[in-house]
């Protein structure tokens, strides 16, 4: 899944490296607002969670499989800035410790998956959340839509990079068609899993879901009339 060494030429790799470094630097500032001094341990654990989630393969068709990228999922759960940091660190660990994704392609991978994946996933999620009814149950479908769009968006940006600095003479249309079909299939899987995971977390701990905060703030504390203390509960016992 990750771009290896030598796939894009050296100038393009260096260029995306600069873009990635700037993006991560901006995210470092933003994440402090989302998590204050808890940033390091919290983002570390969320990065570990994303890494574990990426280990889950799902069949895409034709005997191949894709796996969760997690950009939109992390953005909805912990906020976009922290998500950029988490995905970047996951990619850094995979490149340095697991040889997954080339070290010179690290900037490309961070740009595609951490910057484009999270930004598109988050912005589409915010747009969908604004359109859908202001209820807690709208958060999961909005997250799924964000995930669905984020994967092909990263694929399109990759195709553009490949057109600029690709090292194989393949027609732009061919690459675009192949990447889009392939990543639409992965995007569907990503959308379903992201939606289901966000739904299960909002059902149990809606306070942890960053993307649900505007909806939660609208909910008013309800005090329901209960039975007086000491009277037997008619529903209890059997």
């Amino acid at each position: 899944m990750h771009v290896p060494d030598g796939f894009l030429d050296a100038p393009t790799s260096l260029g995306t490296g600069v873009v990635a470094a700037v993006g991560v630097a901006v995210a470092l500032r933003g994440a402090r607002k989302e998590l204050d001094d808890r940033t390091a341990p919290m983002a570390g654990l969320v990065a570990t969670f994303v890494f574990a989630g990426q280990m889950m393969n799902f069949p895409v068709g034709a005997g191949t499989s894709g796996h969760l990228l997690g950009g939109a999922l992390a953005a909805v759960l912990v906020g976009p800035w922290t998500a950029v940091l988490c995905i970047s660190v996951v990619l850094l660990v995979q490149a340095l410790f697991m040889a997954d994704g080339g070290i010179t392609a690290l900037g490309t991978n961070v740009t595609l998956m951490a910057l484009v994946g999270v930004a598109v996933g988050w912005l589409v999620f915010v747009g969908a959340r604004a359109v859908l009814p202001k209820r807690l149950s709208s958060i999961a479908p909005a997250a799924a839509i964000g995930a669905l769009v984020s994967v092909p968006a990263a694929a399109v940006v990759f195709t553009l990079l490949f057109a600029v600095g690709g090292t194989a003479p393949i027609a732009f249309g061919t690459v675009l068609a192949a990447m889009l079909t392939w990543h639409l299939a992965i995007g569907v899987g990503e959308a379903v899993i992201t939606g289901l995971v966000v739904a299960s977390v909002t059902a149990v701990r809606p306070d942890l879901v960053y993307g649900a905060r505007p909806v939660l703030e609208r909910r008013e504390l309800e005090i329901r009339a209960g039975r007086p203390v000491g009277t037997p509960n008619p529903e209890a016992g059997a």
Binding site: L45, T48, F51, C86, V90, V93
Partner: peptide
């Protein structure tokens, strides 16, 4: 901060996986 996040990720990688 990036090094710290990475440190926590490596430290808890085996626990979470």
């Amino acid at each position: 901060l990036v090094v710290q996040i990475m440190g926590f990720m490596i430290r808890y990688l085996d626990v979470v996986t």
